[in-house]
Design a protein around this nucleic acid. Structure first.
Lengths: 188, 188
DNA sequence: ACGGTGATGACACGCTGTGACATCGAAGGA
DNA sequence: TCCTTCGATGTCACAGCGTGTCATCACCGT
């Protein structure tokens, strides 16, 4: 007989998602979340750095995934090829649960505080990708430029995939965005 | 004889900058800032939405400037031309006080909370630029793609301009970044 | 002279996030 | 079996952020 119910972290995450969806992010207190999970607010902060972080769990794995994909590209390929490979690698894990992603994104879009957190996660991603490029021998500022550009394309593709009418798999939307980006830049 | 010293907002901004530089952002309380400015914390929050906002004063003017520059480009020019014009327009106001910009950026770089705020300002910029492109008749996703890409290039140029060794004017650094970006993309 | 206006002060309050210490079941060794 | 250590949680106190509300009072127009 365990002293506590198992998976406190998961329970906190679920409780937070539910309450944020029910009443909105700002109308939910950490005490509310903890109570629904059968814990105390103090314990919430032992599992998550702050009230927002509960929504951004997998960002480290995503980073590792993108870096690994970039590193798997042949060393003599141009930098943008490695970046595109990194973007395409995200489609597999991120493209699974579109309804959940839509709910989550609606929440973020409605809450400036959460947008800030999402942006810094993307910036971290960009930095990691830039570092991976530099390890491939790409000099500055090309490495940062390629990484930032790639994340920008990803951001647009992601937003588009979450659009109401969109039904294609994420991988297709990303590839389309990359294609449109290339012709856009070629036109100038 | 005025009841209060004039320019409360400016005094608060200066006091905040000084204290943030002296002790760091987190070690400075709003009460500290207000006291140095000869005001109360409550008054601080009447002038600035929160403790971070005091560092991001001119972002609205910057947005208007970029939008205006994009709109001034001939309507038949390709979208990326308008974006590049918007970037170049920022050089005039932003490229003036390099030492101040360096101090400010060092503060931001050292403080995640401030990075978040800076990122959302840049995202707002990107959104405004995208909207300006759409008004020029650029469809989605090209408009967002061009705007995001432009802001990404700007970000890299700005960072580079603040690098220790860098002595060229901001306009030159931006133009170089644009050039490198174009050859980078052409290579893939 | 007088009433309205607008910036500020004063005060109370809820919420976030942290430090310090207590609690207690689980796991493992003698 | 007993004892110790360990780790997750609870409890309490607290500083700081940001907001609502009401009071104050010089200034300004009439």
């Amino acid at each position: 007989m365990a002293r506590w119910e198992p998976n406190a972290r998961g329970r906190l995450r679920d409780a937070a998602m539910d309450l944020y969806a029910e009443r909105g992010y700002e109308q939910t207190t950490v005490a509310d979340i903890a109570e629904r999970a059968g814990l105390t607010a103090r314990t919430f902060f032992r599992h998550f750095a702050d009230k927002r972080e509960v929504l951004f769990g997998g960002s480290l794995q995503l980073e590792e995934l993108m870096v690994a994909a970039a590193e798997a590209v042949p060393a003599d390929a141009p930098p943008m090829r490695a970046v595109i490979a990194a973007l395409e690698a995200t489609a597999e894990p991120l493209g699974q649960d579109q309804p959940h992603s839509r709910r989550r994104q609606a929440l973020i879009t409605a809450t400036p505080e959460l947008q800030e957190r999402e942006l810094i996660k993307l910036a971290t991603l960009s930095a990691a990708l830039g570092a991976a490029l530099r390890r491939r021998g790409v000099p500055e500022p090309e490495a940062s430029l390629a990484a930032e550009t790639g994340i920008a394309v990803f951001r647009v593709a992601w937003e588009r995939w979450l659009d109401a009418g969109e039904e294609r798999p994420l991988a297709d939307v990303i590839r389309e965005a990359v294609g449109r980006f290339e012709t856009l830049v070629a036109a100038a």
